[in-house]
């Protein structure tokens, strides 16, 4: 286990900061990127969501996941409720194992995040196929992999404003 990690004292997280990160993720989602990049770009909203669910479970929980899912549904012009369902279930799974996840080091966390995001994608595939869409191919499961690889970076970035000596 990872008790070797230095435990720092961090400043309390502001509500404003959480809101900002979500806003940023939604904005990234809406940037008109060149065609083809959506094949591998991870779902930033779910990444940020997982980060906050794991690190601030009292503030960010299933309800907020549901709301962010609705926003993602509108932003991606998908079917209403598809992201909402996937995010709520994923957030619940993360929340139920939050005590363990928080003790993991970054590599282990990235692995669990990979599993969670795969679960996320699977729920969306099932939801879409039940409502009558064709299967889009296995490349649909590539973004979670990239997302998991980005996880350590994301964690470091989001921690940056809360180190005491950072300002």
């Amino acid at each position: 286990m990872s008790f070797d990690r230095p435990k720092e004292l961090l400043k309390p997280v502001k509500r404003r900061f959480i809101f900002m990160t979500f806003l940023l993720a939604v904005l990234v989602e809406m940037v008109p990127l060149p065609h083809g990049s959506t094949r591998w770009l991870p779902d930033f909203i779910s990444l940020v969501l997982l980060y906050w669910v794991i690190n601030q479970p009292r503030r960010v929980n299933v309800g907020l996941a549901f709301l962010m899912g609705l926003v993602a549904d509108i932003a991606t012009a998908g079917m209403l409720g598809q992201h909402a369902l996937a995010y709520s279930v994923t957030a619940y799974l993360a929340l139920s194992r939050q005590r363990q996840l928080i003790m993991f080091n970054l590599g282990q966390q990235a692995l669990s995040v990979l599993a969670l995001m795969l679960c996320n994608q699977s729920i969306m595939v099932v939801a879409r196929m039940l409502t009558g869409a064709a299967f889009v191919g296995w490349s649909y499961f590539l973004p979670p992999l990239i997302g998991a690889l980005l996880w350590p970076l994301l964690t470091k970035l989001l921690l940056l404003p809360y180190r005491h000596h950072s300002v």
Partner: peptide
């Protein structure tokens, strides 16, 4: 939440 989103999906 799951109930609400399934309702949304179906709706």
């Amino acid at each position: 939440c799951a109930l609400a989103s399934i309702a949304l999906l179906v709706g």
